[in-house]
Amino acid sequence: MATEMLGIMVTKYENLDHIAGVVKAARAAGKAVTLFMTDEGVRFTRDPKFIELLKVDGVEFSCCDHSCERAGIHDKTTGISYGSQYNNAGMLHDSTRVLVF
């Protein structure tokens, strides 16, 4: 049986403790995890506490580059794929379950 995947869509710059808790618990349970940031959620791409999460194995991180531009975020963070809403569409399509933060 293929590994179940949890998709996490982050649209706000809040709930980091919950996001981190869920990501780590999902990995501990053997689930693949994909996380996409859009809208205000892209502010996490420059948040040191969030960037710590990039060290968790088995998690794919991406964000909406358009949202970054709108938020005035021009610096890129290694480990995050800067894409578009296509990443979100693919994540929702491929995920077994989706959480929205």
């Binding site: 919950h18 808790g21 379950r97």
Partner: peptide, 24 residues
């Protein structure tokens, strides 16, 4: 009720995969 604090994320993840529908 995540906003009330004290949630077990392990249990939450187990529920997310065992329930048919999930709303956030």
């Amino acid at each position: 009720e995540l906003y009330k604090g004290g949630a077990s994320y392990d249990k939450l993840v187990a529920d997310v995969f065992s329930f048919d529908k999930v709303f956030c």
